[in-house]
């Protein structure tokens, strides 16, 4: 199992050494990657995916447990170093979830797949909140269900030690839980995002600028407090969404429920009368 990856020795778009000259990410850690479009996020990810050794545009080298591509036979033999989950990805094959998961476990030479497949399914359903069953067809899943299944599959079946999560802000899944699961499986997680909740979920984040890694931050105590608030807001929104989607109204005169937002405390509550 991989212990850490190191990104080192890169240049920015002007050919100057990037400010962050070395970034280490350990197994089970999440690093956020932030910066405006064109700042170099995609290239950074691409360097990692290609296991760059000084030859890409940025001149960066990626080390896996301190070794370069040339030195590391073990990693070279890994068919997939990086697993990706992004908003642009969809399942395209016409098959049931079960048929496909069996196929994937066979490819990974997993002997008795039943148990793992059951775990993937329950993880998927926990993440998406819109349950699927093993007999559902892959191509009919909603965006949220697809992303949830992708995360569960990456966590349980894929061998790739590094997971890249690219802008899944609106994916309709429990993102905090998804990150916890991936961390728990000892994956190195990189999280590219513009979404404040997601960005603050990463303990460290690297700020991209002009093609280079410009700054490296740890989340501050204040940011963590803000994160807790944001998560409460999200929970509130999701309950509100379900409430309205299920055909309910919010009218105190109904005498059933009153939804309020505590403006001073930043807390949310649902009051039952």
């Amino acid at each position: 199992m991989l212990k850490k990856i190191t990104i080192t020795g890169g240049l920015d778009k002007d050919g100057h050494p990037e400010r962050v000259q070395r970034l280490d990410i350990g197994a089970g850690e999440v690093v956020g990657v932030v910066g405006p479009t064109g700042s170099g996020k995609t290239q950074l990810i691409s360097d990692i995916e290609q296991y760059a050794d000084g030859e890409t545009l940025t001149g960066r080298s990626i080390l896996i447990d301190g070794q370069t591509l040339q030195q590391s036979v073990e990693v070279r033999n890994l068919r997939h170093l990086v697993a990706q989950v992004s908003q642009n990805m969809n399942f395209v094959i016409d098959m049931t979830i079960e048929e496909f998961l069996i196929m994937h476990t066979q490819v990974r030479s997993i002997g008795s797949p039943r148990q793992i497949i059951r775990e993937v399914l329950s993880m998927c359903n926990e993440l998406s909140g819109e349950p699927v069953s093993l007999t559902d067809n892959l191509t009919r899943l909603s965006g949220g269900q697809s992303r949830a299944l992708m995360v569960a599959d990456v966590a349980m079946i894929s061998q790739a030690p590094i997971v890249l999560i690219d802008e899944i802000e609106n994916a309709g899944i429990d993102r905090l839980q998804a990150l916890e699961i991936l961390k728990g499986k000892g994956k190195v997680v990189l999280l590219v995002s513009h979404d404040p909740t997601l960005i603050l979920m990463a303990r460290q984040r690297v700020v991209m600028k002009n093609g280079g890694m410009d700054k490296l931050y740890q989340t501050t105590a204040t940011e963590q407090k803000i994160l807790a608030d944001l998560l409460r807001v999200e929970k509130y929104l999701s309950r509100l969404r379900d409430h309205l989607r299920n055909g309910n109204t919010i009218d105190p005169k109904d005498g059933k429920e009153e939804w309020c937002y505590g403006q001073n405390t930043g807390t949310l509550s649902v009051k039952h009368q």
């Binding site: 997939h80 989950v85 642009n88 990805m89 969809n90 395209v92 490819v107 599959d153 894929s158």
Partner: peptide, 15 residues
């Protein structure tokens, strides 16, 4: 075109 399908499909396809 690995950018538009799931990781799982990429792995099975490669196999």
């Amino acid at each position: 075109k690995g950018d538009i399908v799931s990781q799982a499909e990429r792995e099975v396809f490669r196999y």
